[in-house]
Design a protein around this nucleic acid. Structure first.
Lengths: 160, 160
DNA sequence: CCAACTGTAACTATATTGGTTACAGACGAA
DNA sequence: TTCGTCTGTAACCAATATAGTTACAGTTGG
């Protein structure tokens, strides 16, 4: 249905930042984890920054980190930050006003779509980035290396 | 989020057919109510027919009608018939396998997206076409004409 | 046989997403 | 103050999906 991976990527990015703890990440590091171009990441980080989910710093030794604790960022926050609202759309062109169904179907459909959106938002509002990290840890094998390299956390594992 | 109005149009079409009762509708009539091209409607009717929601008849005096009672068609049936599954998509390209987050985020995200999809389907499965028609009737004003014209129901109102 | 339908292919227009290059501006360090 | 390293952002391209349109083969009832 959705042809967009924006939500998945945004959750990935914020989960990565939570994993990296207090260390700020460069767009190129994030892009390597997500497997895309740094500009794509920077564009998304701008949207996340507008929604106060991350803070970024320009200049040398700049980068981005979470704007608040991972347990205070829900997937609903992320959804609202990076996706246009509404799971479904109404008709591209409004239906006929000469048809008793066409003239009123929009109202009835809007009720339905509102219920759908509420259900989605209810699910997303109950999951935090902290939950995502917690679910991640059991998967992460012991050969993953997360060591200090100077003052900077080594997020990428050496495996492979 | 979704750039597709397929679900809305499909619900409109089936609601129109329920409104038309037993009479079969031509794609051109449906297209006029939806305000689009008959071929767009016929394409969609083919998908709905594959899912056994409508039956169509070719040839003169052909057309389409519901394959079963309106109360036995849920919005979930329609959703599955005309939309590709899943509210959200995962990454377009798989994340890095060298990153402990990237290698496992897909699994964790799939759990989340599964919960979202379940919530949406739960809502849609509790609404039938009969419900849609019932919600429509209070909106339809009394000046709407739904009279017999030969053996064929006059779905379009004369107003305007 | 004919007129009226559906089913379907082929083409176009439009929009969205994501990938890429390029560059201005910010900023810490020497 | 200069330099190297970042972000922010514009501009452009490619890929994909939707939907609108024309055209036509095939079906069917009269």
């Amino acid at each position: 249905m959705s042809t967009s991976s924006r939500f998945a990527v945004a959750v990935h990015v914020l989960t990565l930042m939570a994993w990296a703890d207090e260390e700020s990440l460069k767009s190129e590091q994030v892009a390597e984890s997500v497997n895309t171009n740094p500009v794509v990441i920077r564009r998304m980080l701008c949207e996340l920054a507008e929604s106060k989910l991350v803070v970024s710093q320009t200049g040398a030794f700049g980068g981005s980190r979470l704007a608040r604790d991972p347990e205070k960022i829900t997937l609903l926050d992320i959804y609202r930050a990076v996706e246009s609202p509404g799971v479904f759309s109404l008709h591209r062109h409004p239906p006929s006003r000469r048809c008793p169904v066409g003239v009123n179907i929009g109202t009835v459909l809007n009720n339905v779509l509102g219920e759908v959106d509420s259900a989605v938002e209810r699910v997303l509002s109950n999951i935090t980035i902290r939950d995502m990290v917690a679910q991640l840890r059991p998967c992460a094998n012991t050969d993953v290396v997360k060591k200090k390299n100077g003052t900077r956390a080594q997020v990428l594992a050496v495996r492979n």
